[in-house]
Design a protein around this nucleic acid. Sequence first.
DNA 1: AACATTTACGTGGTTAACCAATTATTGAAA
DNA 2: TTTCAATAATTGGTTAACCACGTAAATGTT
Lengths: 233, 233
Amino acid sequence: MNVEIQNLADNPTVQKKVIDKIRNLINYKNLEPGDKLPSERMLSDKFEVKRSTIRAAIQKLEFYGLLKSIPQSGTFVANIGVVALNGMIDEILRLEAPDFKSLVETRILLELKTARLAALRRTEEDLVSMKNSWEAYAAKVVKGEDAVQEDLLFHLAIAKASGNSTMNTFMLTITPEIITNFGKYHVCDKELAILGIEEHRLIYEAIKDKNPQLAKQKMKEHFKELYKYCYNI
Amino acid sequence: MNVEIQNLADNPTVQKKVIDKIRNLINYKNLEPGDKLPSERMLSDKFEVKRSTIRAAIQKLEFYGLLKSIPQSGTFVANIGVVALNGMIDEILRLEAPDFKSLVETRILLELKTARLAALRRTEEDLVSMKNSWEAYAAKVVKGEDAVQEDLLFHLAIAKASGNSTMNTFMLTITPEIITNFGKYHVCDKELAILGIEEHRLIYEAIKDKNPQLAKQKMKEHFKELYKYCYNI
DNA sequence: AACATTTACGTGGTTAACCAATTATTGAAA
DNA sequence: TTTCAATAATTGGTTAACCACGTAAATGTT
């Protein structure tokens, strides 16, 4: 029963097959950077899938910068060599859903850096935004309410103050999953939350004083508990 | 002339307006996590944009984990509080396209870590893959050909060996843009490329010998030239 | 023959109509 | 009044037809 699931436009399995076929096509036809791919309709016909499926696959490869669609003209191989293109598609096809440990590991890496950078680059406006987040967090904690969201928003404010748009984006992409998992594993209890108020304050002060080393140090201490907690699950 | 560009489904300006309106709606209606958003058709009607535009906006918020669409049922506010939701949408609306400096800065941060982790976690299979990439790179360089792609593939092999799927994904997303910009700014000349062969070898050896400190150190030295080059533009 | 103009077709993008599954409504039976 | 099957309305997802634009072949003009 339920055998015909394969036509959903974003069914991962089907999409991967299509991406693989596109790659093979590029190799077989010896397409160089800048060359034009066959039209979507032609590919849809050749691979025997709906055009929407082709479009979804192309969109994904476009996200990774491997293809470039130009309206009323065609889809082109990006200005990237065939070697890199093959290698990257290999990796993309192999990509797995991130595990929680990998998320936390990456978050800690990013935040030690953003704290440092924020201390170097923060504007007055950044400081205001960080302080507001801190106060919202503290207020909730003393009322005994859950404050995971406010916690994360404080950290996002730091990411923004770092002045690095790439890291800021990365933080945004991992934050929701972090929040979800925190809820699932009950990572935050009352005691830790109260401790967090002071830790946040120390980080804030270090950034305010433009002391990058101290900011990183205080962030490290802040994560100490989190680290322990996460690896004990 | 050409005044009516505002209906393109992924016109950034229009999409941001729609996202903002969705946020206001959630606040105005006091929607809690798990609550259902009005149907796409209703939103399309209310905001006076095509349904495809609504769908694109929802898809974006879904990417960041803020909404969740369930077929034949509705679109729901994710299991994340209104505070975090508001804050995150603020950030998403403010997101700017990453600049080259921010990309390089992030890449260096990530790679110092992946080198270290790879030294701790690499499998025999990882080693083979890294060695192949290294040989392909060396072969191209001694022939005097451009080897930017092979260079990056070696680094991607390290990211894969790090065993951290999140960092691996991040490396994949920034690599194409790095390659493109390298070509644009002519960051790689012959001399640097030859130097790169030995530097890559040292990194590889450190990872092979499971020496995380050395791996990080050699990666740092590898980036030294790159750093100088990038900030001199 | 050379160049300007027109025409026809192919392109990615958009959309109104459609689909299957779900949910709400109805109304007759108990 | 309660129950529960039958049905109508609503949902996100899909798709065939359509659109505006770009390209290039065809045509006309000098």
